[in-house]
Design a protein around this nucleic acid. Structure first.
Lengths: 234, 234
DNA sequence: CCAAAAGTGTTGAGTATACACCCATGC
DNA sequence: GCATGGGTGTATACTCAACACTTTTGG
C-alpha cells in the first residue's frame, strides 16, 4: 500500500483568544460570527486552515485580518477535537492565544467583523466550545504570567510601574503591595527607567519604563516569580 | 451558504511520546514503523484519528495498542502542522506525552511493533519531525516536573526515596543532596511511609513509600518547587 | 494648602542550602 | 568487621512579606 487512501480527512480551523489591556482591565476581543451556523452570535475570531498553511501561519493570518497587527505574541493553546463540537461538520480547532497592545489595534478593520472588547468578567455566551477555550486561555495566561514576563506584551513600549501593577492585579484579581511589587519587578533587571514621566493619571507623574529587549529574551524562560504566594492561587 | 463545502480537509494523526523509568534511567518507547513511507525506520507510536474519535481518545487508543495500558497519565503536547511534514500527503500530528510505569508495560504486545526502550541520550534518528517532538516533550517534562509532582506517574505504587531521587536526578541530569531532597519531598505531605522495606538494592533496605492519592490530586496544580535552583535550569 | 498618587527602607519570619556522621545489614 | 547504601540534624544565608511615611504637584 502506498498513500493513506482509506483514512478520514477533517476540517481544521484555528481560533484566536485575543487579550488586550486598556490600562484598567484585561479584555478579550470577540466578533459576531458572520456566517452560518450561529451567524450573529458572539464568537472567537477564527478561520479554516488553508491548503499549504501551517497552523501557526493560519492563526497569524486570522489575527492580522481582525486586528491589522503583525509580530504579535502568540502561543498555541490546545487542539479541541470533540467530534460534535461543530454541528455542521466535524471540525477540529487549534487554538492560539494572543497578547496585543490594545493601542495599536486598528478599530476600523475590526468593524467589519462587528468586533468588541469584553472585560473578562463580562464575556457573553459564546458559540460551540469557545467558552471553554477562553477559560483555558485565562488559566494558562495566569499560570504563565506567574513565572515569565509575558504580560509586558500587553503594554505599550513605554509604561509606568503603577500601570504594570494594575495589569498584574487585574490578571490575578487581587491587590499587591506596591513596595514589594516594584522591588520584585525591578530586581529582574528587565526594566529600564526613562527620563520622562507619564502625567495624565497623577499630578506628580510616574516615570516611564521600557523593557530591556535583550534581557527580556534571555530571561524569558527562567522562572521569575512575579506574584506573591503563587501556590495559594489554585 | 450552508456547510463548509469549499474548505480543504486534512489527515490528522496522533503521536505518543512515551516515557518510562527502569530504576536507572528515563527511557522513551519507540517503534519501527510498519508501513510506508519510511517503513522500518524508528518512529513514535502513532495513528490516524478516526471518524468519530476525539484526539484524546485516539491517543489513548494508540497508547493502549502498544503498551496494553489504560488510565495512563497523558497530556496534549503540541499540534505539528508543517504542510510538508509527511511527504505522502499533508497530515497534521497532535502529540501527546505519556508517563507509564515501565513494570506494567506488556512486552509481548509491543513486540508486534518492534518496539524498544531507548535512553534519552541514545535516541536514534527518527522519521519526519519526530525528533523535534521528542525534544519538546523532554523540555515540557522537565518544566512541569520542576513544579508539579508529575514524576510519580513513572514509578510503581510503592517506591523508595533513593529510587525517587535517582529519577529526579535523571530527569535533570544532575545530582541532589539526599538530605535536602528527602526533606523537600516529604514536606509536600504527598508521601506515606510504609512498613516494608525494599531489600534488593541495599543491605540495610530502604523504606517504601506510597503516594497519598487524595493529596496528590488536590496539590497537583500548586507550585511545589521540587528541584533546587529551578531558575538556573535554562 | 490640601488631595491624590508616586516613591522608597527596614524588620522578622520562613525557606533553601550546605554540610557530616551514625545506622543496619549481608557478606 | 567491614563495605555499602540508608537515614537523619543544624547553622547560615537568603528571600519574601508586612508594614508607613515623605514627596510632588495641580487645583
Amino acid at each position: 500500500m502506498t498513500g493513506y487512501s482509506h483514512q478520514k480527512r477533517f476540517l481544521v480551523a484555528v481560533d484566536c483568544i485575543i487579550f488586550g489591556f486598556d490600562g484598567q482591565q484585561l479584555k478579550l476581543l470577540l466578533i459576531q460570527r458572520g456566517f452560518e451556523p450561529e451567524k450573529g452570535k458572539w464568537s472567537l475570531m477564527g478561520g479554516f486552515v488553508e491548503k499549504e498553511e501551517s497552523f501557526e501561519l493560519a492563526a497569524g493570518r486570522v489575527l492580522h485580518k481582525l486586528t491589522g497587527l503583525e509580530n504579535v505574541y502568540m502561543e498555541q493553546l490546545y487542539a479541541f477535537s470533540d467530534p460534535a463540537r461543530d454541528p455542521i461538520e466535524r471540525t477540529a480547532s487549534i487554538t492560539y492565544f494572543a497578547l496585543i497592545d490594545i493601542n495599536q489595534y486598528k478599530h476600523q478593520i475590526s468593524k467589519d467583523y462587528h468586533a468588541e472588547w469584553f472585560p473578562l468578567n463580562k464575556i457573553p455566551k459564546l458559540i460551540f466550545d469557545h467558552t471553554e477555550m477562553v477559560e483555558m486561555a485565562k488559566e494558562k495566561l495566569r499560570y504563565k504570567a506567574a513565572l515569565h514576563p509575558i504580560l509586558f506584551e500587553l503594554l505599550p513600549e513605554k509604561f509606568t510601574l503603577p500601570q504594570l501593577q494594575v495589569l498584574y492585579e487585574g490578571v490575578y484579581d487581587s491587590t499587591f503591595d506596591k513596595r514589594n511589587f516594584s522591588r520584585k519587578v525591578l530586581s529582574t533587571g528587565l526594566l529600564v527607567k526613562q527620563k520622562e514621566k507619564e502625567k495624565e493619571s497623577s499630578k506628580r507623574g510616574a516615570f516611564y519604563f521600557k523593557l530591556d529587549k535583550r534581557k527580556y529574551k534571555t530571561k524569558f524562560d527562567a522562572f521569575l516569580n512575579f506574584i506573591p504566594n503563587p501556590h495559594k492561587l489554585k
